[in-house]
Design a protein around this nucleic acid. Structure first.
Length: 408
RNA sequence: GGGGAGAUACCCAAGCGGUCAAAGGGGGCAGGCUGUAAACCUGUUGGCGUAGCCUUCGGAGGUUCGAACCCUCCUCUCCCCA
């Protein structure tokens, strides 16, 4: 493989910054000559286990390295998760228990191979080395860093200037991440741009400990479905790759129009010229944003669930939202006959049985707002005891449907 | 160690003795509209069979007819001084 071409491929839209391009070129060159693959590190935090589109940007970058013959080293940060990455946070994260972390890590491993090449992936836990360090060794390690240097980090600096707390263990996070790089002898470390500081620390520590420093390759941060802040599970503005086809489809359709380009560029597998064509048609008005979004949604579903699922999700979406029809399949709400009184049930009770309302008040609110329909007829808040027959359809809001089945 | 400031609902943030289930914003949910679960507009957002009642304002006590608001102690955070 031609090194210049490889470099060009690696530095596509999914790369925001490289530290440094020259060094990367050199490493690629040497690897090509010696046949020794580069070790490309990515640390993952098993705090929120579900991989979402935001993670895929960087995972696809790792895949790109793997396709060029290099080795992906995935570090499950079971020990760093005990700290919680303070990146981008104005608050200390809650610490997770070891059991939660293990469970999350397992989920992560399951999902990650939807993108990575298992043949070229090493998975390690950083607890493997951290749990063996003695306190003396920790002290020796920390002596290589200074407080002033650590306070250069944006989020620490911000919090510091706003008089918000910074716990000492949080400061350990970048140090631990840097040490990971040393332990796996990383040639390249991947991460989103918010990881800049941590990754540069790794470079510094590797040099300090007599290794060649790693390349930092930073991916852009994907904006969440809300359109304003980064995609994050804890915020809830995410599209998870393990989510159901209809969820992925629907959530994609719900992104603000001005986000379409970003998703095409960072989260899709469309070729660069296709992306460009889409973007041009959007900006010159020749395409309806809805239609482009529709194609994007189909594409994303097929990436994680296959073409058939994508077709189905697409037609279901049209059925429900364009034609305002009922979906072909809907969850069944089983209702025992003795829940009814003379064939009637209090609508609030029904909503709670369907798990469509969190409380009676919530359910009453929904009814009053006209969000509840039975067989297409709006439930009147003044007549809350509704007659139920088997096979009826309950609709709550625009997108929650249930088929009611009576049983004894 | 000494002095000062603060902790309010999912988040930010008002309130400083009754009219406070608690302003405003964000987020969530819903309705309208539409090209979509975009945008925009409107409503709603502690619990209870829907009436008033119950439980909320860091924790525990206290003062008062009455406390998110006053007092005491405790926990946590920040600032200044050393």
């Amino acid at each position: 493989m031609n090194v210049d071409l490889a470099l060009e491929q690696l530095l596509d839209a999914r790369t925001a910054e490289v530290y440094t391009k020259e060094e990367l070129h050199k490493k690629l060159q040497r690897s090509a000559e010696t046949g020794i693959p580069l070790r490309v590190k990515l640390g993952v935090d098993p705090t929120a286990p579900d991989i979402h589109l935001g993670h895929t940007v960087v995972l696809r970058k790792m895949r790109a390295f793997q396709d060029l013959g290099h080795t992906g080293v995935l570090i499950i940060g079971d020990y760093t998760a005990l700290v919680g990455d303070p990146t981008g946070r104005s608050k200390t994260r809650p610490q997770l228990s070891y059991e939660e972390i293990e469970h999350n890590a397992a989920t992560y491993r399951e999902q990650v191979f939807k993108i990575l090449d298992p043949e070229r992936t090493e998975i390690v836990h950083n607890g493997d080395w951290f749990k063996k360090l003695s306190f003396g060794e920790v002290l020796r390690l920390t002596s290589r860093f200074t407080v002033a240097r650590l306070l250069e980090r944006d989020d620490f600096a911000n919090r510091f200037s706003k008089n918000l707390p910074i716990s000492l263990h949080e400061v350990m996070y970048p140090i631990m991440q840097a040490y990971d790089s040393v332990m796996v002898r990383a040639d390249v470390e991947l991460g989103a741009t918010e990881q800049t500081f941590n990754i540069l620390m790794g470079r510094q520590l590797q040099e300090n400990m007599g290794q060649e420093r790693q390349i930092g390759l930073l991916a852009p941060i994907l904006t969440g479905t809300c359109g304003s802040v980064r995609m994050s599970k804890s915020i809830g503005n995410y599209i998870g790759i393990a989510e159901s086809p209809s969820e992925i489809f629907g959530k994609t359709m719900s992104i603000p129009d001005n986000l379409i380009g970003e998703y095409l560029r960072l989260a899709s597998e469309f070729e660069a010229d296709e992306v460009e064509r889409f973007e041009r048609s959007l900006s010159d008005g020749s395409a309806n944003p809805r239609d482009v979004k529709f194609q994007l949604a189909r594409h994303l579903v097929s990436l994680y669930h296959g073409d058939d699922a994508a077709d189905k999700a697409g037609s279901e979406f049209e059925q429900i939202f364009s034609k305002r029809d009922l979906p072909d399949e809907m969850p069944v709400l089983e209702l025992k006959r003795d829940e009814l009184e003379e064939g009637r049930i209090w609508i609030v009770k029904l909503l709670k049985l369907a798990n469509a309302a969190s409380s009676n008040s919530n359910a009453i609110g929904l009814v009053q707002q006209g969000a509840v329909q039975l067989d297409g007829a709006r439930v009147d808040a003044d007549a809350p005891d509704v007659k139920i027959e088997s096979g009826m359809t309950l609709k709550v809001g625009k997108r929650r449907f249930f088929r009611i089945e009576l049983s004894n």
